[in-house]
Design a protein around this nucleic acid. Structure first.
Length: 425
RNA sequence: GGAGGGAUGGCCGAGUGGACGAAGGCGGCUGUCUUGAAAACAGCUGUGGGUGUUAAAGCCCACCGGGGGUUCGAAUCCCUCUCCCUCCGCCA
């Protein structure tokens, strides 16, 4: 959510931002009109309330019964006016809020203009794409051949886009989760384990609702939404709180499964485990002061890159262009790792500076040390990293001619002695 | 799932229709005293919105778990929801 002050003082900035995102800027004018209407009604309501408050105070002092009844009658009339105008006001406020709730964050000046992902800007490429003396297999062949990946039974259990990991395959994923959490906690992040189903206002606060309801799973009997990313829960963690500046920055890491309907990509040909309705992810999340958020953003990108480096996966970093930028992000860097078998760069992380966009929705503020009042914190989120795609890259890049896969060095402490995944004999 | 009891400011806790944004205590901040600290004493100490201003002060409105109602007037009465506690049942 953007600051209503910004609509009043610098609406052009918001219009330009929407235009950069290739979106219609006209909601800005609707917001301004509704805001004016709201204040007009509010002032009248408050004026009448003040009159009633004062009148009611006088009533208890009036001794004469007739005068008293007369005053009560006139205050009743004022009260009826208040009710009438107040219901109009409420309606305007609901419309205003729902309009503002669907306007995306301001775009950072450094974000390159572009219509879609093809116009994202390559920042850097790190590591060498591995060479093979044989044709590397894609994971959808390799995994089943190794007996660690079972698509048929996944489909039996839950339908298309679900799979089962077996034995060392499941263990490899667990090792990746532990490795990532341990790496991040070593670099200052505090681990959290959160609910995977959250209430509607929590999903609203992080920005996935109301606009992206179609991509979320929802329990219709209870007020539960399955998290599409644990970022949702990590935003909700400090909802409605006022933090002390000395407590900032708050740096969290959390593991969770993520649940997405993926309706938009329903028809798209995606083989293997690259895109499912359920996938695991380790997330990083930071709350900090506005002065610090750029620094924290760079740091978080580096923290995500570190995971790729330690896993010895070749990767590249892209700055998303305006057309590919997410709703709540002001700026986003994506990290892609090379997967030798399917021959693709796979997006494994998305790191965003959200500024105060989520904090305003979630009412997360802090008390500055030397100033009066409160300010909204800035929040940042980044995957660190998405599991299935890292699994793909690890399996495909480390495969050998005989179909076996060498486990990366850094994961071995969690692999119970397994250094190589051999095909069943 | 059944029965009962609760929810008040950073914390504890009073308040059952008007002078209550809310006693009192604790904590915190500032000052006096002190070489310094402690103690004592005095003052201050919530959030949001509107208006106003170069900025502020000031003024007004709202907030006593959420929503709705009764009333001239609600922390206080009524309805409803949520959450917490105690007991019983069930359970990984």
């Amino acid at each position: 959510m953007l600051d209503i002050q910004l609509f009043r003082e610098n609406p052009d900035l918001i219009r330009q931002s929407l235009t950069k995102r290739h979106q219609d800027p006209s909601p800005v004018d609707q917001v301004i009109t509704l805001d004016e209407k709201r204040r007009e009604l509010l002032q009248e309501v408050e004026r009448l309330r003040a009159e009633r408050n004062q009148g009611s105070q006088e009533i208890k002092k009036i001794e004469d019964p007739d005068q008293r009844q007369e005053k009560i009658a006139s205050m009743r009339a004022v009260g009826d006016q208040v009710d009438l105008l107040n219901s109009k006001l409420k309606e305007v406020e609901i419309n205003l809020k729902s309009l503002m709730a669907e306007i995306p964050n301001l775009v950072d000046d450094r974000v390159p203009d572009g219509a879609d992902e093809s116009e994202n800007e390559l920042i850097k490429t790190v590591g060498d794409v591995p060479e093979f003396s044989f044709t590397p297999q894609p994971h959808w062949d390799l995994g089943p051949a190794l007996g660690i990946l079972d698509f048929e039974r996944g489909v039996k259990l839950s339908g298309t886009r679900f799979y089962v990991l077996n034995g060392v395959g499941a263990r490899l994923q667990r090792a990746l989760v532990s490795f990532m959490l341990d790496t991040h906690t070593r670099h200052g992040y505090q681990e959290r384990y959160t609910p995977f189903m959250v209430k509607e206002d929590i999903v609203f606060a992080s920005g996935q609702l109301p606009k992206f309801a179609g991509n979320l799973y929802h329990d219709h009997e209870e007020d539960f939404w399955w998290v599409p990313t644990v970022e949702v829960a990590l935003t909700g963690l400090h909802k409605d709180e006022i933090l002390e500046e000395t407590a900032l920055p708050l740096e969290y890491t959390a593991y969770s499964p993520c649940f997405r309907r993926e309706k938009m990509s329903a028809g798209r040909e995606v083989r293997g485990i690259k895109r499912g309705h359920q996938f695991d992810k380790v997330e990083m999340y930071i709350y900090c002061t506005p002065e610090e958020s750029e620094k924290q953003f760079q740091r978080m990108v580096d923290d995500a890159e570190r995971v790729c480096r330690e896993l010895e996966l070749p990767y590249r970093v892209n700055k998303l262009c305006t057309g590919d930028l997410g709703f709540h992000a002001a700026i986003t860097y994506d990290i892609e790792v090379w997967a030798a078998g399917c021959g693709e760069w796979l997006e494994v992380s998305s790191i965003s500076n959200v500024l105060d966009f989520q904090a305003r929705r979630a009412a997360i503020r802090y008390r500055p040390k030397d100033k009066k009042g409160t300010r909204f914190v800035h929040t940042l989120n980044g995957s660190g990293l998405g599991l299935p795609r890292v699994m793909i890259a690890v399996l495909e890049n480390n495969q050998q001619a005989d179909g076996s896969v060498v486990i990366p060095e850094v994961l071995r402490p969690w692999m119970g002695g397994v250094e190589i995944i051999e095909p069943p004999t």
